[in-house]
Amino acid sequence: MRPRTEIAMTDAATQTDAAIGEVDAHRRILVAAAHRMLGTLAEAEDAVQEAFVRWIRLHPSERAAIANPAGWLMRVTGRICLDTLGSARARRETYVGEWLPEPVPADLSNGDPAEAALAAESVSTALLLVLETLTPAERVAFVLHEVFAVPFGEIAEVLGRSPAACRQLAASARLHVGRRSGAAVPRSRHDEVVAAFAAASATGRLDALVRVLAPDVVLVSDGGGVVSAARRPVRGVDHVARFLLGLARKQPTAAYEPMVTGDGLGFVIRLNGTVAAVVTFATDGERITDVWMMRNPGKLRAWV
């Protein structure tokens, strides 16, 4: 017969394993939600890890009393993201150069469950940039309710406000997102425009590239202060075209690999086999309106 202490230790280990399994079962959806709230995969994973720690620290009887562990984990993750958003805004004020949300591939095959969840429910850079303009409370309310259908009563627990106030926050965010997002371009048309841009870029001719760029096109490059990147947005068709052609001349051995992203067709730029940048686009259905160039190595790990 085993000693009581050994039995107790075995039971505790079993309970811990069960608690870990509960979190792992919901990790994909939690990371997907946190990514929308925070804009980077690293911060999203940190938020979910913190929720995981809080779940494990609960007494087994407390966990057993929670009827909906998935809902509990989502609420806790939302609260952590709300707290993180406040400090993130302060950090971004001192960020070196322009800040862009982390692009995520729409088709990953490396087997990571969190990234697979993000791939299945990928979001565009355009949407994440609009979400950046919301207040932290609006962003959390919008993501939890509009994307993940969390009831306002539960969102109220996250935000520390009444359900009615949370409903107003989500409505305000929805209106703002709709107004800033503009008319949606069909993905097939978006990809056709990007393919035309790629063909024009391959010619190396300024006039060819200018024809596929909107007059008020904007290029934003995020190097995070780690690698060289344009410190300010490049604006206007002539400036953007010359910037892109100049970059191509400086990197004659660069390989441009087409890749499906949350924005549609984009490109992974490799130098000597190493991912140097990911470029995504927005279009008006006829020409390129925005070019987003992610060069920050810390936001490229999903592409390696």
Results as ranks from 00 to 15, higher is better:
208 A>Q: 02
70 A>Q: 10
301 R>F: 10
183 A>P: 09
51 A>P: 01
169 L>T: 08
47 A>N: 01
153 G>H: 09
105 P>N: 02
288 I>G: 02
50 E>H: 11
54 R>I: 01
61 S>R: 13
60 P>H: 11
163 P>I: 06
292 W>P: 00
179 R>K: 10
162 S>W: 11
128 L>R: 03
159 L>Q: 13
95 Y>R: 08
257 E>H: 03
105 P>Y: 08
126 A>K: 01
203 T>R: 05
204 G>Y: 05
64 A>T: 06
55 W>L: 04
211 R>M: 14
74 M>C: 09
154 E>V: 06
146 E>S: 12
300 L>W: 12
146 E>N: 01
199 A>M: 04
66 I>W: 00
61 S>M: 13
216 D>L: 12
172 S>N: 14
35 H>Q: 03
242 R>Q: 02
88 A>N: 06
211 R>W: 14
46 D>R: 11
174 R>K: 13
162 S>G: 14
227 V>M: 01
8 A>N: 10
133 T>E: 10
179 R>I: 01
151 P>Q: 11
220 V>M: 00
31 V>T: 09
44 A>F: 01
222 D>L: 01
173 A>C: 14
119 A>H: 15
269 I>S: 04
220 V>Y: 00
61 S>V: 07
196 A>I: 03
254 A>F: 06
238 D>G: 02
43 E>T: 07
78 G>Q: 12
165 A>K: 09
3 P>S: 11
220 V>E: 00
256 Y>G: 07
181 S>Q: 09
109 S>Q: 11
276 A>S: 05
162 S>N: 04
18 A>H: 15
17 D>T: 02
51 A>E: 15
14 T>E: 15
220 V>P: 00
105 P>C: 07
240 V>D: 02
208 A>W: 02
286 E>M: 15
268 V>P: 00
291 V>H: 05
235 R>P: 00
40 T>G: 14
104 V>F: 03
70 A>T: 03
241 A>C: 08
210 V>F: 15
1 M>S: 10
224 G>S: 05
27 R>C: 06
134 L>R: 03
180 R>Q: 11
156 A>Q: 09
75 R>D: 07
8 A>F: 07
50 E>N: 07
212 V>L: 13
28 R>W: 10
175 L>S: 06
78 G>K: 01
118 L>D: 04
187 R>L: 06
227 V>L: 05
177 V>S: 07
167 R>E: 15
71 G>N: 01
135 T>Y: 10
63 R>F: 11
267 F>R: 06
218 V>S: 13
109 S>C: 05
283 T>C: 10
187 R>D: 15
49 Q>D: 13
170 A>H: 01
216 D>F: 04
117 A>P: 09
238 D>Q: 15
203 T>G: 15
218 V>K: 06
191 D>R: 04
104 V>H: 06
224 G>H: 04
176 H>S: 15
257 E>T: 02
43 E>H: 09
191 D>V: 01
245 L>C: 06
17 D>I: 00
97 G>E: 04
284 D>I: 10
171 A>P: 04
121 E>W: 05
182 G>L: 13
15 Q>H: 13
270 R>H: 12
145 H>A: 09
227 V>S: 05
150 V>L: 12
23 V>D: 08
